[in-house]
Amino acid sequence: GSLMYASIFGNVSAIIQRLYSGTARYHTQMLRVREFIRFHQIPNPLRQRLEEYFQHAWSYTNGIDMNAVLKGFPECLQADICLHLNRSLLQHCKPFRGATKGCLRALAMKFKTTHAPPGDTLVHAGDLLTALYFISRGSIEILRGDVVVAILGKNDIFGEPLNLYARPGKSNGDVRALTYCDLHKIHRDDLLEVLDMYPEFSDHFWSSLEITFNLRDTNMIPGSPGSTELEGGFSRQRKRKLSFRRRTDKDTEQPGEVSALGPGRAGAGPSSRGRPGGPWGESPSSGPSSPESSEDEGPGRSSSPLRLVPFSSPRPPGEPPGGEPLMEDCEKSSDTCNPLSGAFSGVSNIFSFWGDSRGRQYQELPRCPAPTPSLLNIPLSSPGRRPRGDVESRLDALQRQLNRLETRLSADMATVLQLLQRQMTLVPPAYSAVTTPGPGPTSTSPLLPVSPLPTLTLDSLSQVSQFMACEELPPGAPELPQEGPTRRLSLPGQLGALTSQPLHRHGSDPGS
């Protein structure tokens, strides 16, 4: 009898404990919600809404976190579960008819179910419309201010047509639940991603989709105040780019002037030289400038040598048109050559190039014969006009050509200096018209024969001689050997007369 009593008592207590286990969990969670309300000092109306929603959600799901349970299964099984949970929507909604099984599984994985109690606001006026909503159960109302403009029910759709707008718009009203509602919502990016994977279904979906109420604000059109608020930074940046392009296009129409201050000032006329910023005076940081632009901040801005204009002085008759350009485009679109090309026009420029290279940067340069637009006047290309890779490749080509020119210049200078040193070592320090008596009659020769300089066969020296023939050397430049009979510069000019005159010897006659 005691054994029977113990078994009955144990079973009854276990049954009672299981009955009250759900209630215990409910009270535990309710205590957490109330502690949250007390800690954050939530006001009474919002506090009442929180408690009511918790009670309804507990009775609806029995305190089970559906998302946590669903995430515990593998992905393939999750797709089947989501397809079952959203079967009513996918079967009865017209846009989803005719979709393949794979497309429906992908869509079912992207849908999220939302449960809303009465009085809950789903979308506020001015919120971004980031999702498309399908009503599965219940009814909602749409308000503009305090005026109800629409009441939607089961199988209705609200949001915005995503295929017509590249960016999400703003809501033009509040969406509030009238009863307990079940909503299926899919985010904008998720829907577009699935439709991109199934393009054959995309056309059918957009053609058959009928949005019951379009929440997009109709005033959000390009150029409206609301649109400016939504895309303020983007609009200002776009206007700045367009104004920069218009100014650079105007600059290219004036090829007669070359400016070292950047493309923003290349198009300024002579009357605007004294102004601080020219056409860019209202925004000094709008356009890029070269490193020399920092010198323009000092006094005497109108007389600054940074602004270059072609000189009108005539060229000498024998002067060549100019050196070879550094870039391939210089032959086609440049009416002034790079300062480095002028360094190779003569030997005198070679000796004085490194010492006063900055001073020569603004000297007169030889002109190319074609009066085409200036290379320095070409505006900086924006990322939309020329690819970045093209600019980098041009810079690399320019750097390689500069290296080759520097190597060639160093070799030419070394060769010229070597020839000058050899000339100085071969010439005796001094010569006299009267020579010392020699031991015999073989001493009648006034000077030792001097062998002429070897013929220069280097390509670089031939180019130097060509430049010497075309360029007029300055007075202080050293002379180079030329073709024809060679003669030492330090010898007297009348050596031929010395050989014809008898030598005057000093000596005593033994017979006297």
Rank of each mutant, 00 (worst) to 15 (best):
V194H: 03
S303H: 04
S357D: 08
G233L: 11
T372W: 11
P161H: 08
S171L: 03
G138N: 01
P371R: 09
A469E: 11
K154S: 09
E472V: 12
P502W: 15
P379E: 09
I157F: 04
L426V: 09
E471D: 13
P449C: 05
R238H: 11
R273Q: 10
L409H: 03
A497W: 14
A260P: 12
G226V: 10
P492T: 11
L261Y: 12
S348L: 04
T444E: 10
E392N: 15
D251R: 08
D356A: 13
F311I: 12
E471T: 06
L326P: 04
P199M: 01
T248C: 10
E229C: 10
R367G: 09
S393V: 11
W206A: 04
Q363H: 08
G232W: 10
I221V: 14
E295K: 05
R388A: 11
A268F: 14
V391E: 13
T444D: 12
L152N: 01
T415H: 06
L503H: 05
V148M: 09
L417T: 05
T436V: 07
M413G: 04
P474D: 06
M327S: 12
L242I: 12
P492F: 11
S207N: 15
Y165T: 09
S345E: 09
L162A: 10
N219M: 09
K332F: 11
Y431L: 09
T248D: 07
Q423N: 11
T425Y: 13
A469K: 04
T455N: 12
V416H: 11
I211Q: 02
Y133G: 02
S271H: 13
P485D: 10
T372Q: 10
E479D: 15
E141K: 06
Q463H: 04
P222Q: 08
L395M: 05
D459L: 05
S202Q: 15
A150I: 03
L495Q: 12
E193M: 10
N214F: 02
P387G: 14
F467I: 14
R301K: 05
T457V: 05
A131R: 06
P439A: 13
L261M: 13
I157Y: 04
F344S: 06
G173I: 01
R167N: 14
R360C: 08
H187G: 09
P454F: 04
L409T: 04
L402M: 04
S334Y: 10
R265E: 13
S289T: 05
L261C: 10
S208G: 10
D251M: 08
S171V: 01
Q501K: 12
A370Y: 11
P373A: 08
A497K: 13
F344Y: 04
R404G: 08
T457A: 09
P481G: 12
L402E: 03
S348D: 15
N349G: 11
A414Y: 04
S243L: 09
M424G: 09
T435S: 11
T218Q: 10
D146A: 04
S304L: 14
T212K: 03
V427I: 11
E319A: 07
D203V: 13
V147W: 08
S334A: 04
E319M: 14
G267K: 10
D329K: 08
Q421S: 08
T499D: 14
L480Q: 07
D196H: 14
R246S: 11
R422I: 05
G126T: 01
